[in-house]
Design a protein around this nucleic acid. Sequence first.
DNA 1: CGTGCGACCTGGGGGC
DNA 2: TGCCCCCAGGTCGCAC
Length: 324
Amino acid sequence: MPELPEVEVVRRGLARWVTGRTVEDVDVLDARSLRRHVHGVEDFRGNVTGARVTDVVRRGKFLWMILEDPDGPRSALAAAPSTALMAHLGMSGQLLIEEPDAPLEKHLKVRLRLSAASDADGTPLPADLRFVDQRIFGGMFVTDLEPTTDGRPGGLGGGSLPLIPRQAAHIARDPLDPAFSAESFHRRLRERKTSLKRALLDQGLISGIGNIYADEALWAARMHYARPTDTLRRPDTLRIVEAVTTVMRRALEAGGTSFDSLYVNVNGASGYFARDLEAYGRAGQPCRRCLSEGRTTLMRREAFMNRSSFLCLFCQPRPRNARA
DNA sequence: CGTGCGACCTGGGGGC
DNA sequence: TGCCCCCAGGTCGCAC
């Protein structure tokens, strides 16, 4: 399940393997993966073919390659000389760098042929960039870039341009972004009449967090998912932000969380953070913090927001003023 | 406008 | 063996 750490692993892979290369050809095997490209498959192919990738940027779970056309700006907007090739992995999307003669994946959706390139040793780099997606919640599309409202870079990555794809402009800064502000997150949390986990999953408030890391952070911060956000005091917000940031940094170091072959990096390798999960998927198993303090408390699974939440009711007692 | 919920998808697993 | 239902879940559009 790609959340921020998994998408960042992919971004780094793309930055290393794709930056500076030109897209020579595009093969769309399933138009459903281009659902968010409003002008259709041929327009997508026309916008991507011949463009050079200059940077790979990420905000939250959105990832984009900055495209520049060697023949000059193709956008009608003079203020947007470059465009973005956006990708969202959804539940099961993969971006893979492979040799063109590698067997085609069952769920291969889009195939980009890249210009020849070699690494520092002179070893040729694989020429295929493939978008594979079993459940089709993810997708790719081309869009214009617009100025960020705060004048800061649009996201994390090589790009220092204060530009953001329009479709990601409503996405909040993520905890690994230097422009993330815990103070403004706290202010907005206090204004909301909602529950803490719902807020953590709201990409407009703080981005990059999905069901897995939400549960991990809540467990680490010893807070219940139903805690009303307007009761949070500044130290509470700082505690959950610290927990989210720490768990994501650790997951990133481990190469992300892979339960099965659905999440892999650009070279097809799984991450190994799943073994370090303290909450997610651990229903019926002992809470490790309780165990280390001499108690045997079993982790629970509860339904919340039509999905599973995993928690320890000793460490994370349900608040009396719990909110849905 | 803030909030919450259903639709979009496929494959795996359990029940019968 | 096969069929049906449920579950996984990120984002968007829509209803209230």
